[in-house]
Simulated assay, not measured.
Amino acid sequence: MALKATIYKADLTISDMDRGYYDSHSLTIAQHPSETIERMMLRIAVFALHAGEYMAFTRGISDDEEPDLWQKNFSDEIEQWIELGEPDEKRLRKACGRAGQVWLYNYGGRSADIWWEGMAGKVGRFEHLNIFSIATDTLAELAALCERSMQLNATVQDGVLWLSSEQGSVAVSPHRLYGSAER
């Protein structure tokens, strides 16, 4: 019998002073059986960094044709394609060909560093690509905020996300590896 996704609920209040975006989102997050709590919480943090009226979680891990998050316009064109992890060159090329902006959040410590060493020389030809690295310690801190039903507050200022709940507060400070676009 196949394992089923675990469902989490999050009421997320966002104050993004960098973009002037202030809103609340009621999120339902499906954690794939192969997905860690750290990765799932990173998806929520990245949602907060890029939140907009049409930002949405996708089938992600369950579907090779979709990123972890995306934002589409009324014409069903992908405005933002957001990936987590260490995609191969072919997947990045596909994303850059289909979306107006592509955002990649790399995580995982040493394996992420090795991935970047191999990819750094290959990404220069991809338009609209922005790559960030998330520290391993940050992932552990995000996991400590996780509950099946969460009340989260997100404040973004000067590129840093402060995500807090009754469990505590975490500063998520993505380190830019490549690209120059502003969120």
Rank of each mutant, 00 (worst) to 15 (best):
D23E: 15
R19S: 04
L42A: 01
A95M: 14
S75A: 09
K90F: 08
K90S: 12
E53H: 08
I29T: 03
I82E: 09
I82P: 06
D16Y: 06
D76W: 09
Y22K: 07
A140Y: 13
R176I: 02
E147H: 07
E65H: 01
K9C: 01
T155G: 04
V156I: 15
V46C: 00
P174I: 04
E83H: 05
A2T: 03
E127S: 08
G60W: 03
R176W: 03
N73D: 13
S173D: 15
G109A: 02
Y54M: 06
L69Y: 06
Q151D: 15
Y21N: 06
R93Q: 15
T136D: 14
A45F: 01
A112P: 01
I78D: 08
L163E: 08
H175R: 14
L161P: 03
K72D: 12
F47Q: 02
L69A: 08
L27D: 07
V172W: 08
D63L: 04
P33H: 05
I44S: 00
E89A: 15
L152H: 10
A48N: 05
S180A: 03
E182T: 03
Y21Q: 05
L152Y: 11
W81I: 10
A120C: 12
T155M: 07
L129E: 04
S111P: 03
I37T: 13
E65M: 02
A2S: 01
I29W: 01
W70P: 08
D113L: 11
Y22I: 11
W70E: 13
A10N: 06
A140V: 14
R43V: 11
L69N: 10
K90L: 11
Q167G: 02
Y105C: 03
R93E: 15
F47I: 04
R110K: 05
G52C: 09
G52A: 14
A181L: 12
P174N: 03
A95C: 14
I114N: 06
S24V: 13
N153V: 12
L49F: 03
M1N: 07
R39N: 05
I131H: 00
M41H: 04
D158M: 13
G168W: 11
Q157W: 08
S149M: 08
R59A: 05
Q31N: 03
D63K: 02
H50P: 00
E147S: 10
S180R: 04
Q80P: 01
D64F: 09
L3T: 12
Q151R: 15
A99C: 10
P33C: 06
A56M: 06
H175L: 13
G124S: 13
F132V: 00
I37P: 02
L92A: 12
V123G: 13
G100C: 05
L152F: 09
G109S: 01
L129D: 02
G97D: 11
S62W: 00
M119H: 11
A143E: 11
K122F: 12
L161R: 02
C96G: 08
A120E: 15
